[in-house]
């Protein structure tokens, strides 16, 4: 069981260039420490899947040139305003964006976790999103209970789900509480890599109160302990976002040179901020 444990750097090495990587939104569980390690190892051509959106994590990977394709319902930094490196990449035409909508992303992952090729989703008909998706199509209810068009979305099978959690144990079980989008992500992906703020001394699945909110180790390929591993975004129930750092990031990421300076200070100069 201890062979599950590795270093953050090794996790980043095991996410190959070109991989489809599912990421949780900033308010859920973001492995920012592995995100920096991916930038440091020079990851390229990643296909990010925001479940259902990405924020600072996506912006940093895009800015560092790690991302070829972004599949998401939105890129949002919430109250911090527009995502600067995402905007710059769209303007420069260096990023392919596959625009989606939250429930279709959840449904695509649910199809994958069930091992079926597609999932029907309500709504969406009449949205221009449909015109630009070759992995969505219009079908009908084969049982005839619902008349009219029904959107079918193809299963989304990530190569990797990358998340950060408050607690994990030596069996690879990872506690996510009510942030169960990460459960679906882990079920749907071929491999799941986890960083954890704290290692639980025992078996999370043996505790009846913790087990229902725990991703079983059978889905987890490798994990690393990373105290404060979601910094500078927050981790639910543990710590909030580092507001001063995020504001500084936004200011610097407005320009290519400013962003390069941020990378030098916080990614390439190891452990500068931790």
């Amino acid at each position: 069981m201890s062979e599950l444990f590795t270093s953050v750097e090794d996790l980043a090495e095991r996410i190959p260039n070109g991989a489809k990587v599912a990421l949780a939104p900033d308010y859920s569980g973001c492995s920012m420490v592995t995100t920096r390690a991916l930038v440091a190892r020079g990851a390229r051509d990643l296909h990010l899947i925001g479940v259902p959106s990405v924020g600072f994590q996506g912006d940093m990977l895009i800015g560092a040139g790690c991302v070829a394709t972004l599949e998401t319902a939105a890129v949002t930094l919430d109250e911090y305003g527009p995502a600067p490196r995402f905007m710059a990449a769209v303007k420069a035409g260096t990023l392919k964006v596959i625009d989606g909508t939250c429930p279709a992303i959840h449904a695509g992952l649910q199809a994958a976790e069930k091992g079926i090729p597609f999932m029907p989703v309500r709504g969406i008909v009449g949205s221009d999103l449909l015109k630009h998706r070759d992995d969505w199509t219009i079908g009908t209810d084969p049982f005839g209970e619902q008349d009219g068009p029904l959107v079918l979305v193809k299963a989304i099978r990530p190569d990797v789900t990358l998340i950060h959690v408050p607690l994990a144990d030596r069996h690879g079980n990872a506690w996510i509480g009510v942030r169960r989008e990460m459960m679906v992500m882990a079920h749907a992906a071929r491999e799941t890599f986890v960083t954890a703020d704290e290692i639980y001394d025992g078996d999370l699945l043996a505790d009846e109160q913790l087990a229902p909110g725990t991703i079983p180790g059978l889905y987890v390929s490798a994990l690393a302990k990373a105290t404060n591993g979601a910094w500078p975004v927050g981790l639910f129930g543990r710590y909030g976002p580092d507001d001063a750092h995020l504001r500084d990031y936004l200011e610097r990421a407005r320009t290519d040179a400013g962003f390069a300076g941020w990378l030098d200070e916080f990614v390439y100069a190891p452990k500068a901020a931790e």
Binding site: P52, S53, V75, A83, C102, P103, A104, G123, V125, H132
Partner: peptide, 27 residues
């Protein structure tokens, strides 16, 4: 429109994205 101004995908101004609107608006 939560996606952008201009001829998609070559938007002149990019917005954050559609979020759940395409679904919730109908339901």
């Amino acid at each position: 429109n939560l996606v952008g101004i201009g001829d998609y995908p070559d938007t002149k101004v990019r917005f954050p994205g559609s979020f759940g609107s395409a679904y919730l608006y109908l339901l």
